Computed example of a mutant assay.
Amino acid sequence: MRPGAGLMTVVAIGAYIVDLYMFGDRLPEPGESVNAADYATAHGGKAANVAVAAARLGAPTSFVGCLGDDGARPVALAELRAEGIDVGDCTTAIGVATGRSFVCVDAGGGQLVMTWPGAADLLPPAQAAAAVADLPTGSVLVLQGEIPLEISYAAATAAPAGVRVLLNPSPAGPFREGTGKELLARADVLVLNEGELSALAGDTPGDLDDLRGRTRGRTVVVTRGEHGAEIADDGGTMLIDVPSVRVVDTTGAGDAFTGALAAALRAGTGLVRGVRLACQVATVSVTRRFCAPSYPSAAELGIAPLHGPSVQERPA
C-alpha cells in the first residue's frame, strides 16, 4: 500500500539535489581559492532531506518532486526507495539535469552553499496538488521555499481539511509578499531559523507575535542552533535546550529538524515533545558529515519507530 492510500503520511514536496562537498580547514574569502582536504557526493535537497529524516524515524513518508533525465535520476529514486520513501508521484523533466549544490565546509562545521535547482523547479503545480488531494486526516504536508512558491501553494490549497501544513519559509525573501504571504496564511506550523525570522518578522517578541498572526495555526518554531529551539503559540513561548556537541557539518540540520517534527506530529506526538525530538535529531546530524546521510534512525535514538495510527486504526 502506498503511504497516501489509507495511511496518514508525511508528504514532502520540493527539491531533490545532488550535493557536491568540499571539506577544508577554512572557507575561501571572495576571490580566493583554497585547497580542499576531502571531496564527496551525497544526496540532498530540502524536501528530500525532510523525507529521509521522517522515514528514518518510522513515519510513512512520500517525496514529491521533479528529477532530471540524467544519470542522477535512477540513483536518486533508488536512494529514496531504500529509505522506505514512496516516490510514485515524482516526475521527470526531459532535457534538464537534476539539481546540484556545491557545499564547502570548514573544520568547525561552517558552510558555504551555492545551489542550481535544475529540474527541481519544473514540478507541475497540478501534479503537486494531485499528490495531496486525497491525503487522510492526520497527515502532515511539508513545504519549503526551495522551489517556485506557485508549486507549494498549489499543494497547500489542495490539501484536505485535517491535513496539517508544516512550512519552512526558506529562503525567506519570497514570503514577504504575494504568493509567499498567501502561503504563510496556510501554515499550521511555521518552522524557521533566526535569519529567516529576522527577515520575516524582526527580532522583538511583538514581531514574532505578528508573524504568528499571519499563519493559520498561530504556531511558530524558531531553531536557534546551539541554543536549541523556541516554541511560540497561544500558550506563550518555551525554549527547548540542546546539549553541547562537537560540530562537524551543519548542512541540512534544519531539514533534519523539520522532518523529525513532521514525523512526530503525524504520529500524534504533542508539539513540545515533537520539538524535543527534532532538536535531538538535528543535534546528532551536526556531528556527522553531509545532509540526509547524517540523520539518525529511531533505533539509534533508542525510541520506538513513529509509525503512529493508520486511518483504519483511528476511532470512528
Rank of each mutant, 00 (worst) to 15 (best):
P174A: 14
G84Q: 02
V132G: 00
A129D: 06
P160N: 00
R81H: 03
I147H: 13
G162Y: 08
V163N: 08
I147T: 14
V113T: 13
V103I: 15
A156T: 09
T98Q: 02
L167W: 11
A159P: 13
L80P: 03
L112Q: 11
R81N: 05
G118A: 04
L141Q: 10
L80K: 02
G173P: 04
T98L: 02
T91W: 12
A126E: 10
T157R: 15
A97Y: 02
A82R: 11
E83K: 05
V103W: 14
L149P: 06
V105N: 07
D106F: 01
G99D: 11
G84A: 02
D106I: 00
G110D: 12
I85T: 01
T91Y: 11
S101E: 04
N168K: 13
C90F: 00
Q144I: 10
V105Y: 08
T98P: 01
M114G: 05
P171G: 07
A119E: 03
P148W: 14
Y153K: 10
V132H: 01
G173H: 13
P171C: 08
E146V: 11
V96T: 14
N168F: 15
P124Q: 04
A154W: 13
L167M: 13
E83I: 04
P125S: 00
L166D: 10
P171E: 06
T91L: 06
V105K: 06
D134C: 06
A120M: 12
E150C: 11
A93Y: 08
G109P: 07
D121W: 15
V113L: 08
T137A: 11
L80N: 01
G138F: 03
I147R: 05
A119D: 04
V87L: 02
P174K: 14
D121N: 15
T115F: 01
A93E: 03
A133F: 08
D106M: 01
A119S: 13
